[in-house]
Simulated scan of single mutants.
Amino acid sequence: MNLFLMYLPVFLLVFVRMSAFFVTAPFFSIRGVPNQFKIALAFIIAVISFQSLPIQGEIPMDLTFILYVMKEALVGVILGYICEMMFIAIQVAGGLMDMQMGLAMANVIDPKTGAYIPVTGNFKNILAVLYFFSIDGHHMLIRGVISSYQVIPVDIMWAAFGSENVMMTAVKTFQTMFTSAFMIAAPIVVALFLVDLSLGIIAKSVPQFNIFVVGLPIKLLAGFLLLIVVMPAFLLTLNGLFGNMFRALAEMMKSLGGSP
């Protein structure tokens, strides 16, 4: 009984970090996934992780335990959101493409957040999730959060949330997110800009040509054809995007753990 009471606070902290991670991590945070499944998965992985934790001291069940819980929740949320930002880059790219294709007003409901997102962004996001599963990315995410207990032990009261390394890692991840979004959207955006330029020249040369009636179908057709053409390049970009995601996750874990 004494052994159970001694390790119960540690297990609860492990469970808090794992649950917080699943709240913001890609795919696991989808609203369509039942909360019972998330809790059960977090509990099972917490049990597995608990067996290999580097615990050096006893964690008291007093008011200071609240600080431990807050720390674990923040660590889980930050690590999950760092990974989620790479999927947000795909939605940003879809918004840029829809704006050029004339589909900016045609939004659909995102099953992950319940918000309205661009059609192309939702389509590419679904492809990215399927590709993520095909390369066992969800397994690597789980292994990553399990390894975080080695870098950020649960028996320390606070993590280096306000350190310079954490801020620089967050800024670098934001930069990577927007850079990746522009890389994904650039081929279609540039090509459709050339289509707009051509239509403008035609409208200037032939005033009788009703550019507003003909221009939108031409841009839609060109946009869909370009989506098909650049699909192999999009999959190659996803490789780099997911690689950046796992590198950002590792860097953030080291930064939160206080490693230089």
Rank of each mutant, 00 (worst) to 15 (best):
145 V>F: 05
176 T>E: 15
136 D>R: 12
134 S>M: 11
252 M>N: 02
223 G>M: 09
214 V>C: 07
219 K>N: 07
71 K>F: 01
256 L>V: 08
47 V>E: 09
33 V>F: 08
208 Q>I: 05
177 M>L: 08
19 S>F: 14
45 I>T: 13
95 G>C: 14
152 I>K: 00
182 F>D: 06
221 L>T: 15
126 I>F: 15
56 Q>K: 13
99 M>C: 10
211 I>V: 09
117 I>S: 07
221 L>A: 13
149 Y>S: 12
49 S>M: 06
30 I>R: 10
63 L>A: 14
220 L>C: 08
59 I>E: 05
258 G>L: 09
12 L>W: 03
45 I>D: 08
19 S>V: 04
16 V>T: 12
190 V>K: 14
133 F>L: 14
211 I>L: 08
63 L>F: 15
196 D>E: 13
202 I>C: 06
52 S>Y: 15
165 N>P: 05
248 A>N: 01
5 L>C: 01
91 Q>T: 14
21 F>G: 06
7 Y>K: 03
88 I>Q: 06
48 I>W: 04
64 T>I: 15
211 I>D: 01
207 P>L: 10
50 F>Y: 12
165 N>V: 01
182 F>I: 15
108 V>P: 03
19 S>K: 09
173 T>P: 00
242 F>S: 00
144 G>I: 04
101 M>G: 07
153 P>T: 10
68 Y>G: 01
233 A>M: 15
52 S>E: 13
126 I>L: 14
182 F>T: 11
64 T>D: 12
215 G>L: 04
106 A>S: 11
35 N>R: 04
181 A>R: 09
30 I>H: 11
173 T>F: 00
138 H>A: 14
208 Q>S: 14
22 F>Q: 11
101 M>H: 12
65 F>I: 08
222 A>R: 05
46 A>D: 03
43 F>N: 03
217 P>I: 02
123 F>H: 12
210 N>H: 05
56 Q>H: 13
149 Y>V: 12
92 V>G: 10
61 M>Q: 09
205 S>A: 14
106 A>T: 07
256 L>P: 05
10 V>S: 11
155 D>N: 13
116 Y>F: 15
42 A>V: 08
41 L>Q: 02
184 I>S: 06
175 Q>K: 04
32 G>K: 04
145 V>A: 03
193 F>T: 15
252 M>R: 00
11 F>L: 11
210 N>M: 01
260 P>E: 10
22 F>W: 10
76 G>C: 06
90 I>N: 05
259 S>N: 07
229 V>Q: 05
230 V>K: 03
246 F>R: 00
104 A>I: 02
206 V>L: 10
226 L>S: 13
